[in-house]
Computed example of a mutant assay.
Amino acid sequence: MKKTTITTLLLALIITGCQKQPAALPEEERAKITKQFEESDEKINGYFDLLENPDTSQKVRKQILCKDWPDIYYKQYVPALKQLSPEYTDEELSQALDRAVYYYKEKYVIDCNQ
């Protein structure tokens, strides 16, 4: 149930990001940003698959939750999404990631500080 909620939230962000493109961006720049957004979204979806796979080790899950996912999210996904849909705030996007990561940390009992 929680996975469905998280997935729905992230998909809503993705769909909105893809639909609302500011006219001020030149087509070439918009295409570059859209490509960055889609590539980072693919990586994040791959993380979901790995996190949900019962064969994924705790070590890999910890790497994804504590390093890889936040890194891709903040360095690639968020900047691209904000350029495509400037109505999103840093706080909203940060909270969305925090909720998703928290869910998986609780589910798999992962502590990034250890």
Rank of each mutant, 00 (worst) to 15 (best):
L65E: 06
Q19V: 03
P86T: 07
K59C: 01
I110F: 07
T4S: 12
Y108F: 15
E38S: 14
E91D: 11
R61Y: 14
K43P: 01
R30I: 00
E38A: 13
K59A: 15
D71A: 06
E28K: 15
P86H: 15
I110D: 06
N45Q: 08
T56I: 01
E52L: 08
Q76Y: 09
L97I: 02
A24T: 13
V101P: 01
P22R: 12
I44G: 03
V78Y: 10
K35I: 00
S85T: 11
T16E: 15
A31I: 02
L51F: 04
S94V: 01
I110L: 03
Y102N: 05
P70H: 08
D98P: 01
Y88L: 03
L10G: 01
G17K: 08
K20A: 09
Y73Q: 04
D71K: 12
A80C: 05
P79Q: 12
K67Q: 15
K35L: 07
I72V: 11
K75T: 13
P70I: 02
V78G: 09
S85N: 15
Y74L: 06
Q83M: 14
S94L: 04
K107G: 04
A23G: 05
D68Y: 13
D41W: 10
Y47I: 00
A31R: 14
Y47A: 02
C18Y: 07
A24H: 15
L51R: 07
S57N: 12
T89F: 11
Q83L: 10
L93P: 02
Y108M: 04
A31S: 13
F37C: 07
A100G: 08
D90G: 09
A96F: 03
G17I: 05
K62W: 06
I72A: 10
F48S: 02
T89D: 13
L50P: 00
I33E: 12
T7L: 13
A12M: 09
K107S: 05
Q95P: 00
D98G: 02
A31H: 12
R99N: 11
K2A: 06
K43N: 07
K105L: 04
Q58A: 12
I14L: 06
D68V: 00
I14S: 05
A12F: 08
Y103V: 00
Q83T: 09
A80I: 05
E38W: 05
Y103T: 02
E38L: 14
G17W: 09
